[in-house]
Structures are given as structure tokens and as C-alpha cells.
Design a protein around this nucleic acid. Sequence first.
DNA 1: TTGTAACTGCAAATAATTGGCGATTAGTGT
DNA 2: ACACTAATCGCCAATTATTTGCAGTTACAA
Lengths: 137, 137
Amino acid sequence: MAEQHELREKGLRLTPQRELVLTAVRELGHATPEEVAEKVRQTHPGINLSTVYRNLETLENVGLVQHTHLGHGGATYHAAEELTHLHLVCGKCGAVGDAPIDVAANFVQTLADDYGFKTDVTHFAIYGLCAACNVKN
Amino acid sequence: MAEQHELREKGLRLTPQRELVLTAVRELGHATPEEVAEKVRQTHPGINLSTVYRNLETLENVGLVQHTHLGHGGATYHAAEELTHLHLVCGKCGAVGDAPIDVAANFVQTLADDYGFKTDVTHFAIYGLCAACNVKN
DNA sequence: TTGTAACTGCAAATAATTGGCGATTAGTGT
DNA sequence: ACACTAATCGCCAATTATTTGCAGTTACAA
């Protein structure tokens, strides 16, 4: 019993649905619950949306995924491992780009020093225009 | 007819509801549609939520207000004049603090230079812990 | 005034998310 | 291998947030 599945290590039961949701989040990078469900259904059609929501919540509780409010409508989820970058959300085309967090290191430090505000980089969403949209604007 | 009301200047009809919504947004600093409605109802009880939603949208179209997705659930609106600061959203207590945009100037510049991403500072929401929550944490 | 398009209120329609509950199933102990 | 129990699932009704259709009202120009 040396090999413990990562989900079991967190005290969670290892169900196919759960595993599929986690895998989907990892493969998608970032996605809404709806998108995760769609992805999962490609291999497991019967899965219920509620199940996806509940598993996302559960997985978030144990720290395997996180959610952010990138834009309109819904939250988007991404794997915890992925939390090494910022999300650059294009307000025009909706594309989500990435940038390493250290581009913000200085900024974060300033906020901490001057405002006592401890920025949560994992919850960072930045709006603007992506390079592509910027050109044709 | 020298004095044109700001709303009329934008080509909008000057209705009491519209004016109240705009005033409420300005007084509240930032608020959800729900909160705006509540505020407006203090002086004009009959106003309908749809009307608030529609006016916020209309006012946003002409550039008098803007919205951001500060947290969960809903968008929050604020007056366009107010757009000289960043929003520091506390993930714990929900408080929304402000910081002048120039603390981000450097950061914004980096994103522009390195990623071609044109950051929209008016749509900036930063998550973390506010000073108060940070202490007792 | 009077006409007309903009605007409002209301109620029903959507969309997104959550909660209840009986049926199922993973994981434990035998 | 078998039974047990709580975790989890699927289905579906309930919320919550926002949007839309439409008929009645109103701002404002002529």
C-alpha cells in the first residue's frame, strides 16, 4: 500500500467522476464548470453537472484546484499546480493569456509595504486587451 | 439652453430613475446592481430592479459608469470619475480598498513591453487579504 | 398640445449554481 | 469473497442573478 492515489491522500474517495474532473481541469488549464463537464463527458457521457460542481468544490477544499473570476458569468477553475502564472484576460476576444508571477513581484511588494495588503497571486485576474486585439484596435 | 444636463449631453433622456441610479453609483463608490437599487429606493421606493440594470448598462455605454468583477456573484459598478484607483478586494471580509493606479504603473508597463498586453486599469481587481484581516490571520 | 421614440414596470424567461434525497458504490473490516 | 457504512452520484426541484417581451407611460422636440 505504498502507492496512495493523490485523491486518497487528501482523504477523498477515488471515484471515476472525481478523477475525471481533476484530469479535465488539468488538461484544460482553465475552464468553467460547464467546460469541465463537457470535457469529462467526452469519455464519460453520463456525468451530471451537479457532480462536476460538487467535485470542483471538493477539490478546491483540499487544494488541488482553485477558482478565479476571470470575467463575466462564471468562475473558472484551474489546477493548483498551474498557479505559477497570472491570467491576462482579454476583454475583447476573451482569450486568457499567461505571464509568470514574478512580473508582478514588485507590484505585490509595493502593495504589501504601502497598504498592508497581502495580494493573493493565485487569484489574480488582469483585464485589458491582448496583443492580437490590441493591433486591430 | 446653455445648461445641458450631463445625461442629455450623452443623448440620453433625463428620467428621475436614471438620474437616481447615476447619483447612487457616485455616492456608493462601488456597488452591485442590488445595492444601487436599494440606495435608490430610499428616495424612490417604486423603482424596479430591471430599470436599475438597464440604466447601469445604458450609463456604461455612454461612459459614465463602469463595472468590474470584484468577487463572486455579481458585477460591481462605479462612476467613471472614480477610475483613478485600483480595487484591492479582501477575499476574507469582502472589503474593497483603494490604491492609486500609479502603484501599478511599472507593472502595467512590463506587461505591455513583454507581452503586448494593454492592461485596462479601470478593470483592475486584485485579490488578497486586507491589512485588517491579515493581522488576525 | 401632440406625436413618437425612449423609458419604465411587471412578469415571465434564462442562466448559473445549489440543495434534497433515494440509489449507488468505494473502501474498511471480517 | 462478503457485508457494511458513509461518501458520492444522478436526478430534479429550488435559488439567485440577470435578461427579455410587452404594454403602458413619459420626456421632449416640433
